[in-house]
Amino acid sequence: MAEDEIIIDSISKSFKQGSQTLEVIKEVSFNVSRGEFICIVGPSGCGKTTLLKMICGLEPPTLGRILIRGNPPNPKVHKFGVIFQEDSLMPWRNVMNNIKFGLEIRGMDEIKAKQIAEKYIEIVGLKGFENYYPHQLSGGMKKRVAIARALAIDPDLILMDEPFADLDAQTRSFMQKELFRIWSGLNKTIIFITHNVEEAVFLAQRVIIMTRRPSRVKAIIKIDLPHPRNRLSPPFISYREKILNMFHEEIWG
């Protein structure tokens, strides 16, 4: 495999709640190669979001270290495209200006930013919606705006936190295919958090399964299936069952 883009070296995270200390993540280690698509699955409340926030430098780990291309994560050094679980569009900006936001922060001039934004509006299939405001868009369209905004800065790393959790089944399946299409075209490194095992098997090259809190890495499973993956094929189902079993061990003990 290619060189390690991201090194996560036995990180732990705990939060102080009054006199008690809540240990969320304990000695988690894994590496990610350039251009790899990683899915992280785990029971709810296991600290997946905290892990993602540490990878993009929003939260420091309590112990251990994270290195991205040899440096600790820093949004001013690395280019992160983070897609949050919650709605993260600015309601006062239209689609075009939401997508331009990251470029604006990086000080790109107006005309060039607009050109790039137009390109990504086309890639995520929102042509004709440039002047729409978030409240005029459906849930799936909002997620696509967030994805286009993340892609527009040409990120070193894309981090997605259950991006499709709030979508209905059909939109979700459509968005998974779209994301795969975009990823295979651009060859970006993606870390994708989900609690949907089927989604993970459908998308990932490797699936990282987390334990209950305090969360450790339970297993890392390589999904050796060609794309496009058929959800009904026996090997797909066998991967799914294998991961689901581990997942259920964590939920039910």
């Binding site: 929003l58 949004p75 992160f80 949050f84 709605d87 936001f101």
Partner: peptide, 27 residues
């Protein structure tokens, strides 16, 4: 002001002034 929007701006490398001018004030 939504905390998610502030975090979103931070992940793009926004400094404090940018967060105030581009997120907190318009919001």
């Amino acid at each position: 002001t939504s905390i998610t929007l502030v975090q979103m701006a931070k992940t793009f490398g926004a400094d404090r002034n940018q967060i105030i001018m581009k997120i907190i004030f318009p919001s």
